Simulated scan of single mutants.
Amino acid sequence: MSATIGYTRRLVAAAMLLALAACNTTDIASVEEPAAVPMTGQTNEPAPGFENVKAGSEQDFILNVGRRIYFTQDSATLDSVAKATLDNQATWLANNPGWLLKLQGFADDSGSASAMQALSQKRADAVMAYLTSKGVDAGRMWAKGYGKDREVRDCEDRSCKVQNRRVVANLRTQRDAL
C-alpha cells in the first residue's frame, strides 16, 4: 500500500511540474510592465520629481552639491569626504555669487554642554576656513555653533549619534542674526 501512495505522490508532483512548465507568463508580463532600461551607471537625467530644479537655486545646492559635513566624535578635523563636498560647495558658490552662506555647527551629547558648544563652533569655523582657502569670500559666510541643543535625533547608538556631529551650510540672500 505504501508503494502505491509513494507512486501516486510522484505522479501528482510530475503532473504539477508539467502544468507549471506549460504556463508561459512572459507574454502577460511584457504587456503589464515596460521593459527595464539597461543600467549603465551613468545618466544626466534628473531623478524623478526633480526635473524642474533650477540651476543656481537652493534646491540645486541641496540636491547636487550637498550641504552637510560630518565629523568624527570629539573632532573638528575635515576628512576627505568633507573636503570633497566643500570643494563642490566652493565651486557652486563661485558660480552663484548672489548667495550668502550660514554655517551651523552641531555636536552630539558625548560631553558637557559647554564642551560641545565649543566643539560645534570649531567645526563651523573649520568649514568656513576651508571654504575661504578655496576662494569663497569670508564676507559671504558666517559660522555659529549650536552645541548639542539641536540634535537631529536623541539616541544612544553610534550610527545615530554621527548624524548630530555635523555642519549644515544654509544659503541666505541676506545676513541674519547669529
Score class of each variant (00 low, 15 high):
Glu156Ser: 07
Asn96Arg: 04
Ala35Ile: 11
Asp154Arg: 03
Asn164Lys: 01
Met39Trp: 10
Lys144Trp: 07
Asp149Leu: 07
Arg9Gly: 03
Ser114Asp: 13
Val53Arg: 01
Leu131Gly: 01
Phe106Gly: 07
Glu58Ile: 07
Ser114Glu: 14
Gln59Cys: 12
Gly147Asp: 01
Gly135Leu: 13
Tyr130Thr: 10
Thr72Gln: 15
Thr173Phe: 08
Arg123Gln: 02
Ser57Gly: 09
Gly98Asp: 14
Gln163Leu: 00
Phe50Leu: 15
Ile69Cys: 04
Ile62Pro: 06
Val152Ser: 00
Ala29Gly: 06
Gly145Ser: 01
Ala124Ser: 12
Glu45Trp: 03
Ala29Asp: 15
Cys23Lys: 09
Lys102Pro: 00
Gly49Ile: 06
Asp176Ser: 13
Ile5Ser: 01
Asn95Pro: 11
Ser159Gly: 09
Ala3Val: 06
Gln174Ala: 15
Gly56Met: 11
Arg150Thr: 06
Asn44Gly: 08
Ala177Pro: 04
Phe61Leu: 08
Ala90Ile: 12
Lys148Ser: 14
Thr85Met: 03
Ala29His: 10
Gln117Tyr: 09
Ala129Glu: 11
Gln121Phe: 08
Asp27Gly: 15
Thr77Tyr: 00
Gly105Asn: 13
Leu131Ser: 03
Lys161Cys: 05
Gly56Pro: 12
Arg172His: 09
Thr26Ala: 14
Thr25Pro: 00
Asn24Phe: 02
Leu18Phe: 10
Val127Tyr: 05
Ala124Gly: 07
Leu78Lys: 00
Ser133Met: 11
Ala35Ser: 10
Glu151Thr: 09
Ser159Phe: 02
Leu93Ala: 13
Met128Arg: 14
Gly41Thr: 07
Val12Cys: 03
Ala35Gln: 10
Tyr70Met: 05
Ala126Val: 09
Arg166Tyr: 01
Arg67Val: 04
Asp154Trp: 07
Ser120Tyr: 03
Thr132Asp: 00
Asn52His: 14
Lys161Arg: 06
Ala36Ser: 00
Asp27Leu: 04
Gly105Cys: 14
Ser120Ile: 13
Asp108Ala: 01
Gln89Glu: 08
Leu17Glu: 08
Asp149Trp: 01
Gly105Leu: 13
Val162Met: 08
Val31Lys: 15
Asn44Arg: 09
Glu51Ala: 15
Pro48Ser: 13
Thr72Phe: 10
Ser2Glu: 15
Glu51Gln: 14
Gly111Cys: 11
Arg123Ala: 04
Tyr7Lys: 13
Ala22Asn: 13
Trp142Gln: 14
Asn170Tyr: 12
Val37Tyr: 03
Leu178Ile: 12
Asp176Tyr: 11
Phe50Ile: 08
Asp87Met: 12
Ala35His: 07
Val162Thr: 13
Ala82Ser: 12
Asp87Thr: 12
Val65Lys: 02
Ala36Gln: 05
Leu131Cys: 06
Ala126Pro: 01
Arg175Ile: 10
Val53Asn: 02
Glu156Ala: 05
Val37Ser: 06
Asp60Arg: 13
Met141Thr: 08
Thr25Gly: 08
Val53Leu: 02
Ala118Cys: 11
Ala47Phe: 00
